[in-house]
Design a protein around this nucleic acid. Structure first.
Lengths: 96, 96
DNA sequence: AAAATTGTAAACCAATTGGTTAACTTTGCC
DNA sequence: GGCAAAGTTAACCAATTGGTTTACAATTTT
């Protein structure tokens, strides 16, 4: 009945599997990543392990891993928690 | 066990109930809205009823209403579908 | 190269989303 | 006011998320 694709899959579907620019951003730079990649990059840039991030967000490293590998869709509130509370980043959602 | 707040609630918690600028954008303008408000505004600007939007996205007007009133958390893929496929907007998720 | 640390995968499950119908309320129009 | 259109609310339910544990791979360190 419910047949939802993950956000990552939707992007892939529209922009092609690999390499294509995806409509997400990172650090306001030209490089454009999927949300999964954004998280992985931001976490590493912050010098945290998955376990350390998980602790700050109040979850398990296994769940962080799942997100970073695009294994499931993500709630907006989860995104917020991970980026803002976990990594101290400002999350912006905008449309043009 | 799972005790998640909606994205809207997280914003309220951090920025106060009313009037405060919230970390989402709309049309790249200075005005800043919550995702719910963004959707409502964008839909009206597009001149669509909830029912018409629902049809384009493949859901019911009741669900659109629920989102516009912040009644539940939202999956990233749903956001994408509604804004991009439903309203022809470009959705950008970025962090600073 | 063994040990330790870090990351991934699988499985389980309660709680929640998203799809849907039906009934009700609000808004706009004549 | 009365009618129609638009929007909201409640309820139901399958499928999915997010929390969690355990076990296994990969990477790093000594």
């Amino acid at each position: 009945m419910r047949k939802l694709k993950t956000f990552e899959e939707l992007l892939d579907q529209k922009y092609g599997e690999l390499g294509s620019a995806k409509r997400t951003a990172f650090e306001g730079k030209a490089m454009i990543f999927s949300v999964s990649e954004m998280l992985k990059n931001a976490r590493k840039e912050a010098g945290l392990t998955q376990e350390q991030l998980a602790l700050k967000v109040g979850t398990q490293k296994t769940y962080i891993s799942r997100i970073e590998n695009g294994k499931s869709d993500i709630q907006l509130s989860t995104l917020y928690k991970v980026f803002e509370e976990g990594l101290g980043k400002r999350l912006t959602i905008s449309i043009e």
